[in-house]
Design a protein around this nucleic acid. Structure first.
Lengths: 271, 271
DNA sequence: CCCTTCTATGAATCGTGCT
DNA sequence: CAGCACGATTCATAGAAGG
C-alpha cells in the first residue's frame, strides 16, 4: 500500500488560484480522486530514455541527462529505468486513470523526447485519449552538438483530448512551435522546463478550469498554472521534490507577481 | 509487370553533377538497382494522411490538402490513399530495398506529418535502418489556424543510418529545427518543399556521394542535390511529374546558378 | 524606390444535416 | 443510428497593388 503524505495546501494569497500537492505514487493517488473533475493534464513524466540498453537506462539520472557531471547538486529522480514496452504500458495505465478524473473535452499535454515520442502517442491512444497533435519545443541551437548529425535541439509535447474538442470554448489559436532556451542557473530539477513555456501551454485549457499534473518535479506546471489563473493539483513521488515544488510555488509565485506589478506600473508611467 | 520509361538523363552542364529520373514504381525500380551504391536517401513519400476515415483518404489529393479548391492547376498525385497499416508495410518494403542499394554509413531522411510520424519511425526500424532522430521543419505561423488548438505548423524529417555513422565523415553539425515558409507562387506540386530546406538537408550526406530519391514529385530533392554538388537518381510514378521534375532540374538549375554567379560578382564589387 | 494597404492561401477539421 | 457530404472557419505570411 502506498502511504500518502498530503502536503498542506499552498497558502492562498488573495485571489490566487488554489494549488495542492500530494506526495505519493500517481497510479494510486489518481485512483482515489473523483471522476470528471479536471479540465486538463499538463505533465512531464520520466522519459525512461537515455539509451537503447537497459544498462544505460538504470544509470543514475544525473549520468544520463547532464553532460557536465561535476558539481551537480540536484538529487536523482525516480521512475526513469523502465524498458520501452514497460514504459508504454505504465504510461497507458496512468493516462487512463488521468482520463477518468478529467471531464469531457479536457486536454492532455505530455512532454517527451524524440526517442519516446512514438511510444507516447501509442500510450495516449491506448488509454482512449484522442491524439490531436505534436507541439515542438525548440530549445535553440547549442544543445549537444555532434559531428555529422542533426542537433537534438527539440523536445515534444504530445497532446490530445477526452472526446470531442469543440472549436469555441474560450481558447484561441496557439502556436505549434515554441522557442525557449533552457536555463542553467537556479534550476531546481534536472529536466526543469522554462516557466514561460509552461505558462503558454496552460492556455490550451479552458480558462479557470483545474489542471492536473501527475508528475510535479520541481513544480513548473503548477507554478505556471497558478500564475495563469488555473487551480491545480499535483502528485509527486519523491518527498524531496514535493517540498522543493511546494516552496517554489509559494515563493516564486509571490516574487513573479511583484515583478509583474512593478513592470505594469513602470510601463504605465512610460505611457 | 511494371513498364519502365526511362526519361533521358538531364543534360549535364559543365562540372554539374549527374542527375537521372526513372519513371516507374519505386518498389520495382529499386529492385533493378545494384547494391551498396548510394550514400543517402532524401525523400518525401505520400503521407496517406488527411483524415481519420478511409473515405477522407481516398479523396483527390487537392480536396484533402488544399483549403481553397478554386483555381488549382496542379495535377493530383498518386499513392496517397493507403490506410495506416498498409502504409507502414509499404514504407517498410521500399525502405528495405532502398537500404540494400545504399552503402554502409548511408543516411536516410524521410518527410512525414505529425499523424504518420510514429508509423514512419516503425517502418524505418522494421527495414533495419538505425533511427537516429527527428528533424523539425517549422513552416511558421500562419498555417491553417484552428480555434482552441495548437497550430499544425510543423512537418518532420525522420532520419537514420545504415549501420554505424562515424562522427568524422566530412559532415559538420546540422540544426535540428529548420524554419522556412512554404512558397505559394510558382509551385509545381501541391506539397512542394522549400528548395533552401532541401539544400540544407543534403549536407547530412557525405559530400559528393550519390543521393537517391524514390519519390521525386516536382524534383526539389534532385534540384537541391545537384546545386549542392551531389549526383542523384530519382524515381517517380506519375509521368506528368517525371516531366515536370525533369524540366525543373534543367531550367531552374541554370537560372539559380546564374543568380548565384551574379550575386557573387555583385558582392565582390561591393567589397 | 519605399512604405502601406490589401488580398489570397494553406500535406485540415468541426459540426450540421442528409441519406 | 451510423456513415458520409459539405460548408464554415481560423490568421500569419507572402506577394500584389497602390500611394
Amino acid at each position: 500500500m502506498s502511504k500518502t503524505i498530503v502536503i498542506s495546501p499552498v497558502v492562498e494569497t488573495l485571489n490566487s488560484p488554489k494549488c495542492e500537492i500530494i506526495c505519493g505514487d500517481t497510479l494510486f493517488e489518481l485512483a482515489k480522486l473523483p471522476s470528471d473533475t479536471f479540465y486538463g493534464v499538463i505533465t512531464d513524466p520520466p522519459y525512461s530514455s537515455g539509451g537503447p540498453k537497459i544498462i544505460d537506462r538504470i544509470k543514475p539520472t544525473a549520468d544520463k541527462y547532464l553532460s557536465n557531471k561535476t558539481n551537480n547538486p540536484l538529487p536523482d529522480f525516480e521512475g526513469d529505468a523502465r524498458d520501452q514496452r514497460s514504459w508504454t504500458l505504465w504510461m497507458t495505465a496512468w493516462m487512463r486513470e488521468a482520463r477518468r478524473v478529467c471531464r469531457e473535452g479536457a486536454v492532455i499535454c505530455i512532454f517527451t523526447d524524440w526517442r519516446q515520442l512514438p511510444a507516447a502517442t501509442d500510450a495516449m491512444q491506448w488509454s482512449d485519449w484522442i491524439w490531436r497533435g505534436i507541439v515542438v519545443w525548440d530549445k535553440n541551437e547549442g544543445v549537444r552538438p555532434q559531428l555529422g548529425r542533426f542537433r537534438s535541439q527539440a523536445e515534444y509535447v504530445v497532446w490530445g483530448s477526452k472526446g470531442k474538442l469543440p472549436l469555441k470554448r474560450g481558447v484561441g489559436v496557439l502556436p505549434g512551435v515554441f522557442k525557449f532556451t533552457t536555463k542553467t542557473a537556479n534550476k531546481k530539477h534536472q529536466t526543469e522546463k522554462p516557466l514561460d513555456l509552461m505558462r503558454r501551454l496552460c492556455h490550451i485549457i479552458t480558462p479557470g478550469g483545474p489542471i492536473l499534473d501527475p508528475f510535479v518535479g520541481s513544480g513548473s506546471t503548477l507554478l505556471a498554472a497558478r500564475l495563469e489563473g488555473y487551480p491545480s493539483l499535483g502528485i509527486e513521488l519523491t518527498p524531496v521534490y514535493s517540498k522543493v515544488a511546494h516552496q517554489r510555488i509559494t515563493q516564486e509565485y509571490n516574487q513573479i507577481l511583484q515583478q509583474q506589478t512593478t513592470t505594469a506600473v513602470t510601463s504605465k508611467k512610460e505611457n
